[in-house]
Amino acid sequence: MSDNRLLLIIEDDTAFARTLSRSFERRNYTVLHADSLDAAENLLKQHAPRYAVVDLKLNGNASGLACVQLLRQHVPDMLIVVLTGFASIATAVEAVKLGACQYLAKPSNTDDIEAAFGHIAGVAEPELTARSTSIKTLEWERIHEVLVESDFNISEAARRLGMHRRTLARKLSKQQVR
């Protein structure tokens, strides 16, 4: 099934996914929902969506960046927007390198996401924040950078970071401190 208005939402927060789905359905999109990388892979066997919205952090310490990679392999011209409550420069750069057309911090609404699908080229006037980067944020960015470098292998990332695997898993399960 290939449809110009077919949208895949990869989000583990069921309530948010349902709200986002309804909002896009009101805009005449056909919406598919997956709550994990495996569920997304199963949907891609039967469908070729034109659009995708991917949460950066999924249950079980799964990364949305792995989903971006998977989506790009199955549908090379898909427009992918990564949503996150854990925004960082490192993950934004990686998401775009892996094929996302935009990277948005939560909360983002349907208008923001739809605008992001239509905005592929760079912006000369990006929105800048005056907030300085905290040590916790820098740590979070470094952890995600190493996760990407180690193909999301937690044991390997922990070794490269010089910490125990369980310590890294605990850090990943916590919400980012801003």
Score class of each variant (00 low, 15 high):
residue 169 A to S: 15
residue 176 Q to W: 08
residue 166 R to Q: 13
residue 94 E to I: 05
residue 79 L to W: 01
residue 163 M to N: 02
residue 93 V to M: 15
residue 15 A to T: 14
residue 119 H to C: 10
residue 73 Q to L: 06
residue 139 E to M: 08
residue 145 E to W: 04
residue 118 G to I: 00
residue 106 K to A: 13
residue 79 L to E: 14
residue 11 E to H: 07
residue 127 E to H: 07
residue 25 E to G: 07
residue 73 Q to P: 01
residue 20 L to C: 12
residue 95 A to G: 14
residue 18 R to E: 11
residue 98 L to P: 02
residue 115 A to F: 03
residue 172 L to Q: 13
residue 5 R to N: 12
residue 163 M to R: 06
residue 56 L to F: 10
residue 169 A to D: 14
residue 115 A to I: 00
residue 74 H to W: 04
residue 134 S to R: 02
residue 101 C to E: 05
residue 31 V to S: 10
residue 137 T to W: 01
residue 113 I to Y: 02
residue 138 L to I: 01
residue 29 Y to V: 09
residue 62 A to M: 08
residue 104 L to A: 08
residue 125 E to P: 01
residue 168 L to C: 11
residue 109 N to M: 07
residue 75 V to D: 03
residue 26 R to V: 02
residue 9 I to M: 08
residue 28 N to K: 07
residue 80 I to M: 12
residue 67 C to V: 15
residue 82 V to Y: 04
residue 57 K to W: 04
residue 35 D to K: 13
residue 90 A to V: 11
residue 159 R to Q: 11
residue 59 N to F: 04
residue 107 P to S: 11
residue 38 D to F: 03
residue 62 A to P: 00
residue 47 H to M: 03
residue 148 V to D: 08
residue 112 D to W: 03
residue 150 S to Q: 15
residue 129 T to P: 03
residue 117 F to I: 08
residue 43 L to H: 09
residue 33 H to K: 13
residue 119 H to T: 15
residue 134 S to F: 00
residue 8 L to M: 10
residue 156 E to M: 08
residue 98 L to H: 07
residue 138 L to Q: 08
residue 177 V to C: 05
residue 66 A to L: 08
residue 77 D to E: 15
residue 38 D to G: 03
residue 36 S to Q: 05
residue 148 V to N: 12
residue 55 D to F: 04
residue 145 E to F: 06
residue 46 Q to I: 09
residue 88 S to H: 07
residue 46 Q to P: 00
residue 88 S to F: 11
residue 79 L to D: 12
residue 20 L to Y: 06
residue 148 V to L: 11
residue 35 D to Y: 07
residue 52 A to N: 02
residue 38 D to W: 00
residue 108 S to K: 06
residue 68 V to T: 10
residue 61 N to Y: 04
residue 77 D to M: 13
residue 132 S to T: 10
residue 140 W to G: 00
residue 60 G to V: 09
residue 39 A to F: 00
residue 25 E to F: 05
residue 154 I to F: 04
residue 20 L to N: 08
residue 56 L to E: 10
residue 172 L to D: 11
residue 171 K to S: 09
residue 172 L to R: 11
residue 81 V to P: 11
residue 148 V to F: 13
residue 61 N to S: 13
residue 22 R to F: 13
residue 60 G to E: 07
residue 43 L to C: 03
residue 45 K to P: 00
residue 7 L to G: 09
residue 92 A to Q: 15
residue 76 P to R: 12
residue 61 N to C: 13
residue 105 A to M: 11
residue 113 I to D: 04
residue 115 A to V: 01
residue 72 R to M: 05
residue 147 L to N: 00
residue 168 L to N: 09
residue 80 I to Y: 05
residue 45 K to Y: 02
residue 171 K to W: 02
residue 78 M to Y: 02
residue 163 M to F: 03
residue 91 T to D: 14
residue 136 K to S: 12
residue 135 I to E: 10
residue 29 Y to N: 10
residue 111 D to A: 12
residue 94 E to Q: 14
residue 123 V to M: 00
residue 74 H to Q: 15
residue 5 R to I: 02
residue 77 D to I: 05
residue 120 I to T: 14
residue 176 Q to I: 15
residue 87 A to H: 13
residue 33 H to R: 14
residue 74 H to K: 14
residue 159 R to I: 02
residue 156 E to Y: 01
